[in-house]
Design a protein around this nucleic acid. Structure first.
Lengths: 74, 74
DNA sequence: CAATTATAAGGCAAATTTGCCTTAAGTCAA
DNA sequence: TTGACTTAAGGCAAATTTGCCTTATAATTG
């Protein structure tokens, strides 16, 4: 049973995470540590490989010092 | 390997989906149909049982005629 | 050059989500 | 009551995500 995968949604999140991470001058590894997730997950999220969860979106937003809403803006 | 689960993130999404669905006077089933997902998933999301994906958040937002960002506001 | 750093890429097992299904409970109208 | 509608609840198999790991590539720095 395939999960719903929306390439636009996945790409929007990917671009926003990368944009805000670069703006804060963080490495993927540093962001992962701040967010409490695996470093390879940040890489997969930014490359648009995975359709990650609302909990991870909140964790990334907190680590980036922005709101979760900002990570879904397009 | 348990996924990251943030009860606050899950509850925030749950409340926002329910609030906007009721405001649009839609049943869970109608919302699910508009969003192209299973009706039981809407029930699980609103009850805070599952940690759903960015793609589902976008699909629900579109069906509710709001932005994905609005579903993550708190 | 050698060493370091950052990122991409992929394998793997375990956990979770999803779609489909059934059953039960609650509300409301006729 | 009866029937229709809505929601909750849970089982199941298949698909996906996650954390942990290794390897490779590119860029930079000493």
């Amino acid at each position: 049973m395939p999960q719903l995968r929306d390439p636009f949604a996945i790409a929007t999140l990917a671009e926003n995470v990368r944009k805000h991470r670069i703006a804060k001058d963080l490495s993927q590894e540093a962001l992962a540590n701040f967010a409490g997730i695996e470093y390879s997950q940040v890489s997969r999220i930014e490359r648009g490989i995975i359709n990650t969860s609302v909990s991870v979106i909140f964790a990334l937003a907190k680590a980036l010092d922005i709101t979760p809403s900002q990570l879904l803006e397009f």
